[in-house]
Simulated assay, not measured.
Amino acid sequence: MSVTASQDETAQGSTRVSRRRDRRKAEIVKTATSILAEAGYAGMSLEDVAEKTDIAKATLYHYFSSKDDLVAVALEALTQEVLLRLRAREESVGDASATEMLAALIDEQVLILTETAPEVAAAFSWPRAWPEAFEEPMKHMRRRHDEAFRAVVERGVSDGEFRVDNINVALQCLHGILNQASVWVRPGVHEVDRTEVRRDIVACALRLFV
């Protein structure tokens, strides 16, 4: 066997190990996120995460140095998922007015909070007791999320499409509506008319701007 072939096999083996590690890490993060959504920070333990992922607790420390490390990664993963979904919705709408774009983003956010990723609502919309160490990181995550809406609102104001005296206040009110939507359109409620209810929430939220 040539040196090059041996190196290729070693590289492929290393890649497989890396992929396997990434899959296991993603599984751990997904499990931790689920527990956080159900029980909050205080109710989550590494023992529970290890049991639900069917691995030894000691193995967790090969992936995460502590509970806070794991929680931080889970929260960032949720943030990234939301931002990716909002960005995809923007791209699907394409060249649209600020009103149309904002309506699409509001609709997508309600979908995220009530159907596609309800754990986001549990973690961010109605936060339970979080350690002080998470205050600044969560503020930063919220600001990144807020920017997706702020950019559209600022464009609407600049174009004369929106009439808003104070963008910060209007956006805070919008997030309040979205947070409440995650409670109102929760699983088991409005199952028959969810699309209609979501449409009504979007129409109500838009009145803050037009």
Rank of each mutant, 00 (worst) to 15 (best):
I167G: 11
R87E: 12
R198T: 04
S34W: 07
L105M: 09
E47K: 15
G176S: 00
V120S: 13
F162Q: 09
Q180V: 05
S2A: 15
V110S: 07
S14R: 00
M1Y: 03
I177T: 02
A26L: 07
E119D: 14
S45A: 11
A72F: 06
R150V: 05
N166G: 03
R89W: 08
D107V: 13
S92T: 00
C204Q: 10
Y41T: 10
L84D: 04
K52H: 14
S14L: 03
A11Q: 08
H62Q: 04
G43N: 08
A148I: 11
F209E: 03
R199P: 02
I55E: 13
L206V: 07
N166P: 07
A74G: 07
I35T: 11
D95I: 06
E147T: 00
L75W: 08
L75E: 02
A96K: 04
I35S: 01
R163W: 05
E76G: 11
L83I: 02
E115V: 01
V3T: 08
V110E: 06
Q12D: 07
L86W: 11
A77T: 07
T114M: 05
R23M: 04
A151R: 09
A123G: 03
G176T: 05
R87Q: 13
I106R: 12
S66R: 10
L83V: 05
T99P: 13
R24W: 02
R198A: 01
R144K: 09
L70D: 09
F64K: 02
E191D: 06
L111G: 07
E100Q: 15
L171C: 05
V152I: 00
D54H: 14
R24T: 09
P137G: 09
I35R: 09
M138H: 03
A26G: 04
A50R: 10
R23C: 04
E38H: 14
S182N: 10
H145D: 13
Y61C: 09
A98W: 09
F64R: 12
E119I: 08
A39S: 13
S66Q: 06
A103V: 05
L78Q: 12
V210N: 09
V189M: 15
A39G: 12
R144F: 07
I167Y: 02
P127K: 05
L111P: 10
D107L: 09
E38W: 10
V82N: 11
E47D: 15
A72P: 13
A56D: 07
A181E: 04
D95Y: 03
E136M: 01
A122W: 13
A122Y: 10
H62Y: 06
A129R: 13
I28T: 05
D146I: 00
Q7P: 15
S65K: 15
Q80T: 11
E161V: 14
E191G: 12
E154I: 10
R85W: 08
C173S: 12
E154Y: 03
R150W: 01
S18A: 10
V110Q: 04
S2I: 15
E119G: 12
R194T: 05
L78F: 01
M1V: 03
A122P: 12
S92R: 01
V202S: 00
E119F: 07
E161F: 10
Y61A: 00
S97N: 08
H175V: 00
R23H: 08
E135A: 15
E115T: 02
T31A: 03
A203W: 04
E47P: 14
N179I: 12
V29H: 01
Q7I: 15
A181T: 04
S18M: 04
